[in-house]
Design a protein around this nucleic acid. Sequence first.
DNA 1: CTCTAGATCTAT
DNA 2: TAGATCTAGAGG
Length: 214
Amino acid sequence: MLSGMPPATANTSTAPTIARDVLGILRLPAPQAAPLLIGCELEAHGVRARIVETEAYHSEADLACHAARGRTPRTEPLYAKSGTLYVYLCYGLHQMLNLVCDVEGTPSAVLIRAIAITAGEDVARERRQNLRTPLARLANGPGRVAQALALNRNHNHSGLELGQAICPLKLHPASSRPPLANGGRIGVAYAGPEWGAKPWRWWERDFPVAGRAS
DNA sequence: CTCTAGATCTAT
DNA sequence: TAGATCTAGAGG
């Protein structure tokens, strides 16, 4: 154990170590990574926000996961290495931001369902075209998340990897571990009783508007 | 080629 | 409570 440890003096900058730790969360299967991502912060295009609600989609066996029907051009990023972005269009209108998890070749991802803006509120409000709503409601809902962060599959954000220079999205570690709650995933009743009811949604327990459908 | 059902959001 | 708006995937 000690033989593998670098000398203390080698660790002059902690930033790369911390970044590696956060990305390490994504190496876990999505159902394990999803709760650990609550409290972490996302930053993109001038907006920074704490993740307050996540949802896991895991494996081709999961009938609610897009990979349930196998590998296709759209779902290709789901099979890529952890830290890859999977962004897709839902209902013809909304962009959904997912962070790919687990080992390469295993389709597994966490949908970011809600974030709490911590910096860049004015920019986020402009993008959301909403100057009045309470801050907590500005980006609660997966479509709102991508809009606030200005992430969009039309801008080729799907398939990019966290940590690469061209990737506009950064993931920062959690500064605290808030109490969590969990429950069933939203809008996946079509996946049948088993997969439709899996309690694979997690949220920050005390966040005002997390943990509900709206 | 056509058809249809979405991991939703907003205003009425 | 319905309308917006588009595309992947299935079926012909």
